[in-house]
């Protein structure tokens, strides 16, 4: 599903690269944690997968698409294969919950009829069926992240990327979001989660890839959060 071959990324010409010769492979349907200190290159990896950035060298293949051969005009289509959520939720603050989720379908030209059917379904899946009229800024952090998840999933992407999705949440909400991600994975979506949450990583017993200063230092099935 996701393959990185000797991928390096430098933001500047001099100094150390944010990612240094990284290779990894993630199969369809896997659930993978990516952990590592702040500044180790995790978000850079996410941005490369979203084709927000291009690698300085190496090859990235996602869902059969070689990103180095992806033309500019094809990027939007490609991104529709990937749902993503972030630490800061990135919701539209001036619109309600329903509109935030519908937005994802509107901008990719889904017929209104389908939107009306899909959005409530997604909101039930993330456990917010009643809040569709609320403005997003009136919601708790946990609820906001659920809305973001609903938006990421409403277009049915085969891959979900989550960059520190629980970074702004209390332990209870963090657990609920992680459980939701696990449920989404169980339904067939390949899930990649960047996190600092040691407790959850150690409890969930998933594949854990540890990055340190731009290099993968450990990659284990049913792994644990590794400290220095």
């Amino acid at each position: 599903m996701i393959t990185l071959e000797n991928v390096s990324k430098s933001y500047t010409n001099d100094g150390t690269p944010a990612l240094n010769n990284v290779s990894l492979h993630i199969n369809k349907g896997e659930f993978v944690f990516i952990v590592g200190d702040s500044g180790s290159g995790k978000s850079t990896m996410i941005k490369l997968l979203l084709r927000e950035l291009v690698p300085s060298s190496g090859r990235i293949i996602v869902n059969g698409v070689d990103l180095s051969k992806l033309r500019r005009g094809k990027i939007p289509k490609y991104r529709r294969n990937i749902g993503c959520v972030f630490q800061d939720f990135r919701l539209l603050k001036d619109r309600n919950v329903y509109e935030n989720v519908a937005f994802a379908q509107r901008v990719i030209q889904t017929p209104t009829k389908k939107i009306k059917k899909n959005v409530p379904q997604m909101l039930s899946l993330v456990g917010l069926p009643e809040k569709y009229k609320s403005k997003t800024k009136e919601l708790s952090g946990g609820e906001q992240q659920r809305v973001a998840l609903a938006r990421a999933l409403v277009n049915n992407p085969p891959i979900l990327l989550a960059d520190e999705p629980t970074g702004n949440l209390d332990p209870r909400n963090s657990w609920e979001i992680m459980k939701l991600l696990e449920e989404i994975n169980r339904r067939g979506t390949t899930v990649l989660v960047v996190t600092h949450n040691r407790e959850i990583v150690n409890a969930m017993r998933k594949r854990v890839i540890t990055v340190k200063k731009g290099v993968i230092v450990s990659d284990e099935e049913k792994g644990e959060y590794i400290d220095d």
Binding site: P76, R79, R90, L92, A104, V107, Q109
Partner: peptide
Amino acid sequence: HEEIGIMKLIGATDFVV
């Protein structure tokens, strides 16, 4: 700015953006 960023991530075409 933010909304545009989100649109691009979701896969909105240049036309829509």
